[in-house]
Design a protein around this nucleic acid. Structure first.
Lengths: 169, 169
DNA sequence: TTTATTTGTTTGGTAAACCAAACTTTATTC
DNA sequence: GAATAAAGTTTGGTTTACCAAACAAATAAA
């Protein structure tokens, strides 16, 4: 789509720069190095590579900003990250930190088609009355081992239908 | 868990070897090279690395088999792959080929906690009467753009409750 | 405005993956 | 059982990504 294919590493650098642009207005080598957990020397190499690809404005010893193209690509990556993290925390109900760690890696693995479908699924779940808050709650109980008993599973549908009818009035 | 941490590459080699063991009883360098789309020379290096880690039985010019440990690790990776692909095809309803491509990459990105939770979610969906076949069908319609209309959404719950009650008798 | 300090760059070196092509071993075929 | 083919290995070279440490530039402090 954007016509660019980046290594996971360069994608991460781009995302970091976007993050810094948002919070600090401008990205500095030192901050990028800290956020990525590498030495400053390693950053310089990555910046040259990103600049060659036309994704950042970079002159030695100057501030770093994203180009128009760079902003588009970084935004795309960031969108994947947010969608995936949202899925992991709100659907799978993973611990926020674990969700974040997994999203950081998954964002490089999932293509647009998959992420878009994930968005559609979340949307369907959120708008369909069958999968309302109580259904989500049910998953929390289910995964905590209360799956075998399912005490009120039998009447769940009926009760939900009643509640639903009530709200419609 | 298994106490081993492998690069994505070595994980892929291990998975390939498992695959070949299943179909051909034994893995040959040529076949591994073909399946992974690399030259034979590249395979030799990877095999040395896997042998050093005690994951495969490897002597130059001999057949390759997985050790007990290698089988365990490869099985773990393969499980992740199957779970993810299952999710992508049956929940997100992605095209099988697209699901396969994404699963191949995602299997290296998701940790055990995330995959386990995915399993639990699929299980919940499949056992909960609210998210039955018709709900899944609804997603297929929803994602095809018929989301705005939702013609029979209003009565869906009531009808489902009735059907459900019927089946219980 | 000198002198520190911080920040950024460069250089040399390592490790993982890969290729290309020469080479060796094993398997086939005549 | 020798000649040929196929399979596997080695060697030298490339790329990406990193570190460590020397160096240069810019900023801050004296």
């Amino acid at each position: 789509m954007t016509g660019i294919d980046l290594s996971e590493n360069l994608e991460d650098y781009l995302e970091t720069i976007l993050e810094l642009e948002k919070t600090q207005k401008v990205a500095r080598v030192k901050d990028i190095a800290e956020m990525r957990g590498v030495l400053r020397g390693s950053v310089t190499g990555a910046l040259k590579s990103l600049a060659e690809k036309g994704l950042i404005n970079y002159e030695p010893y100057s501030f770093i900003t994203l180009t128009r193209k760079g902003t588009a690509v970084a935004g795309e990556i960031n969108r994947r990250h947010r969608v995936i993290k949202n899925f992991l925390t709100h659907v799978l109900q993973l611990d926020p930190q674990i969700a974040e760690d997994n999203a950081c890696r998954m964002e490089h693995a999932m293509d647009r088609a998959a992420v878009d479908r994930m968005v559609a699924f979340i949307d369907y779940m959120e708008t369909c009355p069958r999968t309302d808050a109580s259904w989500i709650q049910g998953f929390a109980r289910h995964r905590q081992g209360e799956s075998d008993s399912r005490p009120d599973c039998k009447d769940c549908m009926t009760r939900s239908a009643e509640e639903h009818a009530q709200n419609k009035k």
